[in-house]
Computed example of a mutant assay.
Amino acid sequence: MLLKSCFDRFASFFGLIFFCPVLFVVAILIKVKMPEGPVIFKQKRVGKAGCLFTMYKFRSMTVGHDGSSVSVAGDARITPLGAVLRKYKLDELPELWNVLKGDMSLVGPRPDVPGYVDCLTGEERDVLKLKPGITGPASLKYRNEEILLTKVENPQKYNDEVVFPDKIRINLYYYRNYSFWKDLQMIVCTILGRKMKYNNELI
Rank of each mutant, 00 (worst) to 15 (best):
C189W: 11
P35D: 05
V113I: 12
C189H: 09
G37T: 05
M186Y: 04
N154S: 13
R59C: 13
D103T: 06
V32A: 06
G67L: 09
N98E: 12
P35M: 08
E146Q: 01
Y56C: 08
S68R: 13
L23Q: 03
C51F: 09
T54Q: 11
N171W: 06
D166A: 12
M34L: 03
M55P: 01
I187E: 12
F41H: 07
Y175H: 10
K89C: 11
T190K: 04
S139F: 07
K57I: 02
I30C: 11
Y142V: 04
E124M: 05
L52S: 15
S12R: 08
L29H: 02
K48R: 15
P165H: 07
A11W: 09
D126Q: 13
L184F: 14
T62D: 08
L93Y: 02
G136F: 04
V26Q: 09
F19Q: 10
V32D: 04
A73T: 03
L140F: 02
G74W: 12
G64P: 13
D91Q: 08
P114D: 01
V163S: 07
G102S: 13
G64E: 13
R176K: 14
D112K: 11
K101R: 12
F7I: 15
R59T: 15
F24L: 14
F18G: 04
A73D: 09
L202E: 03
R194E: 09
E145C: 00
R143H: 12
W97V: 12
G193E: 09
E124V: 01
E124Y: 07
P111I: 11
L100H: 15
C189F: 06
D112V: 15
Y158R: 05
V99L: 05
K195G: 01
V127E: 04
S71E: 00
